[in-house]
Nucleic acid binder design. Structure first.
Lengths: 352, 352
DNA sequence: TCTTCGCATCGAAACGTTCCGATTACGGCC
DNA sequence: GGCCGTAATCGGAACGTTTCGATGCGAAGA
């Protein structure tokens, strides 16, 4: 910058004025400064600028596992919006581990990020370290029950309701649910939606049809096996996320059962490959990209709001969309139901 | 820092010495400084530190599309290693678009990142803006043919060879390949491996069995349809990435053909869901997480090397691993081959 | 002709660190 | 008791910006 100033024969402040364009500079000087900048291949140093202005134009995004197909979409939505607005994104992966999450938060603070977007990990204590400070922060997808603060997620109660209603509309009455980990708001809420729908249509919710606990593929397989081993198995199964859905599909394949003839299956989260299964899987899609985008926009509002004024919208809930494909259908006919009851042992493993 | 110094009754430099631990400070002073830091909830400002030291401890990672399942794994590997080494990661998504890629590179430079990990986009001109400056940079997965610089990727020639060899070992002779976009090194190299294997076993490479161009699911579907519509369709199809594989599977399903009875299919990149297809899909897996990890480690070496010494290892190639499942099998028997030839029109669409 | 005003430009302090050279304190030795 | 060496601590410049008050200068008004 000093060199640019010298070459252009102006002061450093004038160069700064040209770079930032907030102060009027006479056209001829401006041109000569720009020429000098080009000649020296000058690029402003964002670090020095941040130090001076106290604003980094960087946000942090913390996710529990970028490898889980839900998060790339979310991050993408946020990153696209951030880039467009001149922000950069520090990505942190907590590996679903509180210690990591906390240390990431500390690093982000010391890097002076302007705000944080977080999809917190299981048993997260993030809100404890975050809530006290009045700091721009938006929870995404997984909303801690305790902490205050802005949040954005799918309306999972509605999503759970819609999915269940779809099965009920197909005349299913014995509906099993692989509910995931109920300490996480999405799973908790989806179960609530399920309950709402069942109650609305006066259907009983049997304990043995409700399996909760893990959120991995293996948990889905176990749950599916358990449901299919029951004296009277459900005629439809709802899986609370994409991994559990895969597990359930696996358990069904092991018994050589066919969807939707023998039983119906649907899951939350709709991923690319769901369309290419046989049969194509019915799923409840979340507006994940939009969630990321709006999360950033909310955060930006908070960052740029004057200390006095409050941000109005605190908790955004986006509607989910049911995508009906071929893994759900009418209640199995009598002979299929017999097959369903008879096949209580897996035929062969599919996994390799 | 000034406040901490005042509270502890020491100079600012002493606080700095305590924070960095590189200068000896007497135990009692050290303790009082630490007490003061805790009392004031002091956290060192990484930005000021970066300005002073000229090192940001931040690296940039540029990927063409984080939504493509290959990249989260890669990013995860790099991020894990970076975090462990005290680095943070600025994530940039180029959307497979050169303009975006270039502007991301500029932003990363002005943010003074210590190095860049890049999986460049199609027709990338990144090496032009990067090669000139002697800057820590590692190309991942997609290696530009022009630019110099360190790189890491799967040994895709070997991968292509192994995949093809697997089919040849099953006595396939008419092997179709959906080769992707040959301007990208992975696809180019896999085709080369395919060619090597075919030549080694004196099998002809028919033009009509080689389809290249796009890398999306739809491209795979089109290519699959084209191959299946041939007078004499191939008895096995190789798809050059996960999306193309999905497309091919789709084309096969449309014709109600069964793998591996009617034809064998396998693809590059092994993803979670491949195991849950019916039949489970044979695939060539890349050590993606490790690739990310080692990419970072290579970059770190470059960052921390003295200006004099050169980094020795310039181009790392990691071995791929064939995972045989149930979508590949022996050459279809006579009657199945007849089905294959007869079914030249799709039966029904699976997609919704 | 002298004062006043507005506008373009400039100089310098400050942001929160690091780090080098300088300073102080203290014990041992002649 | 004065001198020296060592070790702990300190002062201050510098990193590359922004920003604010100061400065100079020309035009307009009295």
């Amino acid at each position: 910058m000093r060199d640019v100033a010298r070459l252009a024969g102006v002061s450093i402040s004038t160069v700064s004025a040209v770079v930032n364009g907030n102060v009027f500079v006479s056209p001829e000087r401006k041109a000569s400064v720009q020429r000098a900048m080009a000649a020296l291949d000058y690029h402003p140093d964002a670090i020095a600028r941040s130090l001076k202005t106290g604003k980094s134009n960087v946000i942090g995004i913390i996710v529990p596992d970028i490898t889980n197909a839900f998060y790339p979409e979310l991050v993408r939505g946020a990153e696209d919006a951030a880039t467009k607005a001149g922000y950069s994104v520090l990505l942190c992966d907590s590996s679903e581990n509180c210690k990591n999450e906390e240390s990431h938060i500390n690093v982000l603070f010391s890097r002076r990020v302007d705000g944080i977007l977080i999809a917190c990990c299981i048993n997260s204590r993030a809100h404890e370290s975050l809530a006290q400070r009045r700091f721009p922060l938006v929870y995404m997808d997984r909303i801690p029950s305790a902490g205050a603060g802005c949040s954005i997620s799918t309306d999972n109660v509605q999503a759970g309701y819609v999915a269940t209603k779809h099965l009920i509309d197909l005349d299913h009455q014995r509906i099993g649910i692989v509910a995931g980990y109920l300490g996480l708001s999405p799973h908790h809420d989806r179960l609530e939606g399920f309950r709402n729908a069942m109650q609305e249509f006066h259907l009983p919710i049997l304990d043995e049809y409700l399996i909760s606990g893990g959120i991995q593929v293996a948990d889905g397989t176990n749950a599916g096996q358990a449901l299919l081993s029951l004296q009277v198995p459900p005629t439809a199964i709802l899986a609370s996320n994409g991994n559990l859905l895969l597990g359930v599909v696996q358990a069904i394949a092991e018994r050589r059962l066919k969807m939707p003839d023998h039983l119906s299956v649907l899951g939350f989260d709709d991923y690319l490959w769901h369309r290419f299964f046989h049969p194509a899987l019915t799923a409840v899609a979340q507006p994940t990209h939009e969630m990321g985008r709006r999360a950033f926009e909310l955060l930006k509002q908070m960052i740029e709001s004057e200390p006095g004024q409050e941000v109005q919208e605190k908790h955004i809930r986006l509607p989910a969309e049911l995508r009906v494909r071929n893994s759900t259908g009418p209640v199995p006919q009598r002979e299929f139901r017999r097959v369903l009851k008879k096949t209580r042992q897996p035929v062969a493993a599919n996994e390799k």
